[in-house]
């Protein structure tokens, strides 16, 4: 699929700039040009498709669906899937949270959405597709959705309503004022410019991270010896998964920057499951997100929320390492 891009990278580096194909610098530059372009193309493509999905299924419509339909326990799964297809912006998590509980959606179902939304996002999916291929991406997406489902269901069992902030409890008491959802009637052609612009804006905003991430990755490829992690960090010892996850939770890294680095780890002997768990903990949970949620939840609730999700991620890390 990307053969033509490889030809272009070969031509640019070896013919135009005349770096030797057998030199380290030449191959590193070739790798860098090829990877960067490939990922940017994938990124634009996926963000664009998600843009189309979002214009037809805006968040209000999804919420409305969860509200009206009787889903017999499947509401956690649906909420988690909806979380995956909505674009995530950390600053929207609080209004989303309030909007959901205000609409009478149970707290656990709301949590399903809140867990999956940052965990499975279009940028991370595009990066995964570019660096690890289709199979690993599918595992990542499916397990992310599954994790949100289980996490939300577990949190729903805990009866956490008393741990919400006072003003949120007040909102919960009069949740009758439901917002009517009105459909947009614009044609696809009318929506297209806005979708394209949106996709382009997202690609532009992560461009720098992609380039830095791939550059670090390319540099590390040459310097980190083969099987480095197996030799020094006990690549598949039992404690590597929890360690990787615990390091990643407070970290807030852009998916675009972190995936190329993780790819090097995997190439040098870290099991893919450990890498996916690390990735999930990085994008799914972070200190900035906790700070935002502080406005609607008590610290105790945030701790429970983060604790449950962390345990789920660790568990899935083990599961991948067994399965893969």
């Amino acid at each position: 699929m990307f053969d033509w891009l490889q030809h272009f990278a070969d031509w640019l580096i070896y013919s135009v700039f005349e770096f030797g194909a057998e030199t380290h610098l030449g191959t590193a530059l070739n790798f860098f040009v090829f990877d960067t372009l490939k990922i940017l193309i994938l990124l634009f493509f996926i963000v664009f498709i998600m843009g189309i999905v979002n214009t037809y299924f805006p968040i209000e419509r999804l919420k409305d669906y969860l509200n009206r339909k009787k889903l017999y326990g499947l509401e956690y799964l649906f909420s988690s899937i909806f979380g995956a297809i909505t674009p995530f912006c950390s600053c929207s998590s609080v209004p989303l949270f309030i909007g959901f509980v205000q609409g009478g959606i149970p707290l656990g179902v709301t949590f399903s959405f809140l867990i999956t939304s940052p965990l499975v996002n279009e940028v991370a999916v595009a990066m995964f597709l570019g660096m690890f291929g289709v199979k690993a991406t599918l595992i990542y997406v499916v397990s992310g959705v599954f994790l949100g489902t289980i996490g939300g269901w577990l949190l729903g069992k805990f009866k956490l309503e008393p741990l919400l902030s006072d003003w949120v409890k007040k909102i919960l008491k009069n949740k009758t004022q439901n917002l009517e959802y009105e459909d947009e009637n614009r044609t696809f052609k009318q929506r297209l410019p806005e979708i394209t612009r949106g996709a382009w804006d997202i690609v532009k905003s992560v461009l720098l991270y992609v380039i830095i991430g791939i550059a670090i990755g390319a540099a590390m490829h040459g310097y980190v010896p083969e099987n480095f992690f197996n030799q020094y960090l006990g690549g598949d010892e039992w404690w590597t998964v929890p360690l990787a996850v615990l390091i990643a939770v407070p970290m807030y890294a852009n998916a675009a920057g972190i995936v190329p680095v993780i790819q090097v780890f995997v190439a040098k002997g870290v099991p893919l499951g450990t890498a996916i768990a690390f990735m999930m903990a990085t994008v799914g949970l972070s200190i900035p997100e906790a700070t935002l949620l502080k406005k609607v939840m008590s610290l105790k609730l945030i701790a429970i929320f983060f604790g449950v999700v962390t345990l789920c991620i660790i568990f899935s890390g083990y599961l991948f390492n067994i399965l893969l």
């Binding site: 209000e60 912006c89 929207s92 609080v94 209004p95 989303l96 309030i98 909007g99 917002l179 406005k295």
Partner: peptide, 13 residues
Amino acid sequence: DIMEIMKFNVMTT
């Protein structure tokens, strides 16, 4: 202010 924002019933900013 998030509480002010919520008075407008929006879910996405």
